[in-house]
């Protein structure tokens, strides 16, 4: 069926609202007007005027009062005596050491500005990238003239947050073989999910491994989960694998010739199909309000492949709802099976 038109419904995903926090103290919740998990507070709304509560994230206490006022629109959370408001939508707050996926917005003489879904654009100085061939030297005027050969507007890159400035703008670096320009794949953004503190909602969570390789029937696929909610799914780079353990002293062997290439390798149709499948499933996960991490992606991917194969055998491939429908079906089966 080419077109599906549904009646209007409440747009909220209910999955992330069922939170069971062990540190939540339910005994003394007197004086709190808003307690239901489905209700939200809006900016400027008085949460409570009882002095027993402490203010947490997303709240504000005006001078010489004890009234706690919400500063964001979101759900109210309390941890013992601490009140915080978890925003419905938030931008990513960069922290040092985060692995992020970014897109070049503009090129300046000595640096690039990069969109990393943070409130402000990040900067990537020319001195914070690897030169092709891994040569270690001062950046000269020639490099400044050739700045667009490394990255130009629109290019995607994976980088690490090196430092934060006073106004919370981030400075990035790509001085590792894991980082650099992204190609051979598909970009997906989970905008508005934020990172870090919003881990309970759909979005990318800070974890031990932000990049992983997925085994598929067609071949291996690399997935880069940027903490900022930008995700890149690409064909596995074989040359990277061989030169995995190179130290900083022998960078020149490690930094391959194709580090700054904007040309795709030959990708087999099967691999390309699996890349789009993973990318679609990630979007479905977010639509369902689930967290996006390695474990979840692997499980949902395998479930979706099984489901697809079964439907092909049964001959009934009619499923409404697109990506969300598939992910819901897979999650339903996973929960049934344990």
């Amino acid at each position: 069926m080419p077109i599906t038109i549904l009646p209007p419904s409440a747009p909220i995903a209910t999955a992330h609202l069922k939170h069971e926090d062990s540190d939540e103290d339910m005994s003394d919740d007197d004086g709190l007007p808003i307690q239901s998990a489905t209700s939200i507070v809006t900016p400027g709304e008085t949460v409570t005027s009882d002095p027993q509560w402490m203010r947490g994230h997303g709240t504000y206490v005006p001078a010489e009062t004890t009234t706690i006022i919400s500063t964001v629109a979101g759900h109210l959370h309390k941890t013992n005596k601490l009140l915080s408001v978890q925003p419905l939508r938030a931008r990513y707050q960069p922290e040092i050491g985060d692995l992020v996926v970014g897109r070049i917005v503009s090129v300046q003489t000595k640096k690039w500005t990069v969109d990393i879904a943070a409130p402000m654009l990040a900067s990537l100085p020319l001195s914070a990238i690897n030169l092709p061939g891994g040569i270690l030297r001062r950046r000269t005027a020639v490099d400044e003239l050739n700045i667009r050969t490394f990255f130009s507007e629109g290019d995607l890159l994976v980088a690490e947050v090196q430092s934060l400035h006073g106004d919370n703008t981030a400075s990035l670096h790509t001085r590792s073989l894991k980082y650099g320009k992204l190609r051979n794949g598909l970009f997906t953004s989970l905008s508005g999910a934020g990172g870090g503190i919003l881990s309970r909602r759909g979005g990318v969570v800070r974890s031990k491994r932000q990049t992983f390789t997925l085994q598929t029937s067609a071949g291996e696929i690399d997935v880069v989960l940027g903490v900022n909610g930008y995700i890149f799914v690409s064909a596995h780079n074989k040359s990277k694998q061989d030169e995995k353990d190179v130290s900083i002293t022998s960078l020149e062997q490690g930094v391959s010739e194709t580090l700054y290439s904007s040309q795709n390798d030959e990708i087999e149709p099967g691999v390309a199909r699996e890349i789009t499948r993973v990318s679609t499933l990630v979007k479905g996960l977010v639509a369902c309000g689930r967290r996006v991490d390695e474990d979840m992606i692997v499980r949902v991917y395998e479930g979706a492949v099984d489901l697809d194969a079964e439907e092909k055998v049964m001959g009934s491939a009619d499923r409404a709802g697109g990506a969300k429908g598939v992910v819901e079906a897979v999650l339903g089966r996973l929960e049934m099976g344990g």
Binding site: L186, A272, T280
Partner: peptide
């Protein structure tokens, strides 16, 4: 980025085309 555009096009020209939304 040019690499993304190239990838998208290569999936869409296949037969049957693989769309951006896989389903």
């Amino acid at each position: 980025s040019p690499a993304e555009l190239s990838f998208l096009r290569s999936t869409l020209v296949q037969s049957p085309p693989i769309r951006f939304d896989h389903t």
